[in-house]
């Protein structure tokens, strides 16, 4: 299995030599591809149609306030190759904008809406970018960013 993973990673790396920052195999069935944010759409198109990663699993965002960036990770399973790939990119925290990948994998629709709501990342090209889980009149910073603090006071004697 690792052999297949390594071939896929190297294939992606050689196809996009200057766009893909890193393509490595983390462990069995875990390929991690890091791309520049401007080119995420074309890399996604390539790995979905040419390499065969067709089954979107998850979209995660991680906030790094010290480095001033938000990392967005797409997790994709391939039903034909039976392996798992993470497509990673970093966007600036001050201007969180990213191309939506809904044209490539329509299943990431709700995931991207959740990230938009929880991290304030706006996805250009998303057909229906609205809040999902929070109430409609929610105010305040996006709740999963690190500068949103929970109230943790314990009130009892």
């Amino acid at each position: 299995m690792t052999e297949l993973d390594r071939n896929i990673a190297e294939g992606i790396k050689s196809h996009f030599a200057d766009v893909v920052l890193e393509a490595r195999v983390q462990r069995d069935l875990r390929i991690v591809v890091t791309v520049e944010k401007e080119h995420i759409l074309e890399v996604a198109r390539y790995i979905s149609s040419e390499v065969g990663f067709d089954h979107p699993a998850s979209v995660a965002a991680v906030d790094y306030p010290m480095q001033g960036k938000i990392e967005v990770v797409y997790y994709i399973w391939s039903t034909s190759k039976r392996t798992f790939l993470a497509l990673k990119t970093a966007i600036p925290r001050a201007e969180p904008k990213l191309n939506s990948l809904t044209p490539v994998w329509s299943g990431v629709d709700f995931h991207e809406r959740e990230i938009y709501e929880m991290f304030g990342v706006s996805f250009t090209g998303h057909p229906n970018l609205r809040g999902l889980l929070l109430q409609e009149d929610w105010e305040g910073p996006p709740p999963l960013r690190k500068d949103f603090k929970l109230r943790t006071k314990l009130e009892r004697g």
């Binding site: 699993a57 998850s58 995660a60 965002a61 991680v62 990770v73 329509s106 299943g107 709700f110 995931h111």
Partner: peptide, 29 residues
């Protein structure tokens, strides 16, 4: 169905970020 956890740890006793990708959320699509 498939349940995914994405954990980013920063070397403390608390997770830095734990993302849960739940099956119902995905089937809702």
């Amino acid at each position: 169905g498939e349940l995914g956890y994405y954990l980013v740890a920063n070397g403390t006793d608390k997770p830095y970020r734990l993302k849960v990708s739940t099956p119902s959320f995905r089937n809702m699509a």
